[in-house]
Design a protein around this nucleic acid. Structure first.
Length: 205
DNA sequence: TGCCAGGCCCTCTTTAGGGCCTT
């Protein structure tokens, strides 16, 4: 599970990471962690500083972005990647690796897309709201990379439990999660409701 | 000068619009 804090929403508009955390999950638990601030030489906008607590002064004392991204890419290796709203983290991940002349070799799973399918009537799909609704441990401080990555890891494990119940799968693999998150939401829910829970969907997957 | 992300997903839809989610 990876989580970025950044200067904004779009690397295409010049935004860069300010912090990253990578949490390694195996056999249903967190087994290793990487976390670091990083200095890309940018000014942190006031809104972002209020949101994350990460200031320009903090980044001036942080290691350079190139060093941190190389370290975290080595830490991650070829392990499948997960993020909450992976469309956001994957574009920063790819942009920063590209600057290093490296390329991602593995795919992303998105806990936001999975949650929309597993919990079709949830009032909110924000990371904190989903963690609260499941009664999962809320790591502090929120909107810092390591805390958010740990909360998202607990959310992913909880969603896997839900999928085992709904799809009656003996094991939840990265490839299975990829297929589920790409399945049209309306189609998935209609079939779950209309055909009973489990076997028809499992056979299709 | 003025504007500025982008993909998912619902609906008063599909020749579209707007809210959500990430920072």
């Amino acid at each position: 599970m990876i989580d970025f804090e950044t200067t904004g929403l779009s690397p295409a508009r010049g935004d860069r990471p300010t912090e990253i955390a990578a949490v390694l999950v195996a056999e249903g638990r967190i087994v290793d962690r990487y976390q670091s601030l990083m200095n890309a030489g940018l000014f942190v906008p006031p809104f972002i500083e209020r949101l994350t607590g990460i200031s320009t002064a903090m980044l001036r004392r942080a290691p350079p972005v190139e060093q941190v991204m190389a370290e975290v890419a080595d830490f991650v290796g070829t392990v499948p990647l997960v993020a909450h709203n992976a469309a956001f983290d994957s574009k920063f991940w790819d942009a920063e690796l590209s600057r290093l002349g490296r390329q991602r070799s593995q795919s992303f799973v998105c806990t936001l897309l999975l949650a929309r399918r597993v919990l079709p009537r949830a009032p909110s799909y924000k990371l904190g709201a989903l963690v609260d609704s499941f009664g999962l441990p809320a790591a502090e401080p929120a909107h810092r990379a390591l805390a958010d990555a740990e909360m998202a890891s607990h959310l992913m494990l909880r969603l896997e439990q839900e999928l085992i119940e709904q799809f009656q799968c003996a094991a939840v693999t990265h490839d299975l999660l990829r297929r589920i998150q790409r399945m049209p939401k309306s189609q998935l829910q209609t079939r779950l409701a209309g055909e009973g829970r489990g076997l028809p969907i499992r056979a299709e997957l």
